[in-house]
């Protein structure tokens, strides 16, 4: 066939021969698709953007009621106040107290619950004991039950052994309620490893803890990362447990934040409130943006925690 033959489709396109890449027609569908995706992005970004803008404005600007406007005189004063001098009820020490409390709660809670979860998952996967899987099933089901069902008896138990309203108490509570998801994560990870690996280690004379520490834990880096991310964000974002068990001295950042914003006497300082809110959100957000894919894996696996 030569170019002299003009085909019907060629003619329909006004003599231009269809050749090479299909022209990128911006169809209505494609435009609609991007429009939808963009407006969705706007919906997700807007509250955070407003929060950030507000935290950078002085109160006079805020009172003008233009939350979308960029700050005319950007200032970090609200941030400084939120960090160091915002008031919760009578004390005015800022959210920094809550920040450090959260850190003190976070570190032991995460270490303990991750290690315990790894140990549980390892035992469940490789050392079958009669009844262990029933225990695990109950534990998993327990993860779906609202905390309210357990809280009052736990408070009684904790106060009877003297750890209610203490750092030890809140850490223990996080370990308890983190156990289902941590165990699940590690159990599934170890169950996906070839069983021959475990058999080989046993044949070579490894015992329960030797195999765990020498063979399994060194291979567990990926799931350890996921578990740590999950537990750090989980503990950091917790409100109800900290409120109930931490006690006045150890209130975590979320509780402190809520106290600052929702129980202010007199005039509300929205810029300080928003600065404190941003500060509280910064830790999990930083983890989210830094760890990306791992975080997604974590929430997909840990979605049960809710």
């Amino acid at each position: 066939m030569t170019s002299a033959v003009v085909t019907s489709t060629d003619r329909a396109r006004g003599g231009i021969t269809a050749r090479g890449r299909r022209p990128r027609r911006l169809t209505a569908g494609r435009i609609g698709l991007y429009a939808f995706l963009a407006s969705a992005a706007l919906f997700f970004l807007l509250p955070a953007w407003i929060m950030l803008l507000t935290s950078l404005k002085p109160m006079e600007e805020i009172r003008q009621g233009t939350i979308f406007a960029l700050p005319l005189a950007p200032t970090l004063e609200a941030w400084a106040a939120a960090w160091g001098s915002a008031c919760t009820g009578l004390t005015c020490e800022g959210i920094s107290v809550g920040f450090w409390n959260s850190v003190r709660i976070l570190v032991p809670s995460v270490i303990l619950s991750v290690l315990l979860g790894a140990l549980n998952g390892y035992a469940l996967s490789f050392w079958p004991v009669r009844g262990a899987n029933v225990l695990f099933a109950i534990l998993l089901a327990g993860a779906f039950v609202p905390y309210q069902v357990f809280l009052y008896p736990l408070v009684r138990m904790f106060s009877s052994v003297g750890i209610y309203n203490s750092l030890a108490g809140i850490v223990l509570v996080h370990v308890i309620f983190g156990m289902p998801i941590m165990t699940l994560l590690f159990r599934n990870f170890y169950a996906s490893l070839p069983r021959e690996l475990f058999n080989a280690a046993r044949v070579d004379g490894g015992g329960f803890f030797t195999i765990f520490l020498r063979v399994m834990l060194p291979m567990s880096t990926p799931i350890l990362v996921v578990a740590v991310i999950l537990q750090v964000t989980g503990v950091w974002n917790d409100f109800i447990l900290g409120l109930t068990f931490a006690g006045r001295e150890n209130l975590p950042m979320t509780v402190q934040l809520n106290n600052i914003v929702n129980s202010t006497h007199g005039v509300r300082l929205y810029n300080v409130d928003m600065a404190a809110t941003v500060l509280t959100g910064v830790v999990p957000l930083a983890i989210y943006f830094v760890t990306g894919r791992w975080f997604v894996r974590g929430i997909a696996a840990g979605a049960v925690k809710g």
């Binding site: 997700f44 970004l45 509250p47 507000t54 934040l257 999990p284």
Partner: peptide, 24 residues
């Protein structure tokens, strides 16, 4: 980028979420 934007609120606690929307 879009995935990151759609998911980031999930990293925030309900307290932060609630306060942000309360203000908005």
């Amino acid at each position: 980028l879009l995935r990151t934007i759609y998911l980031y609120p999930h990293a925030l606690s309900f307290i932060v979420t609630g306060l942000a929307w309360q203000w908005f």
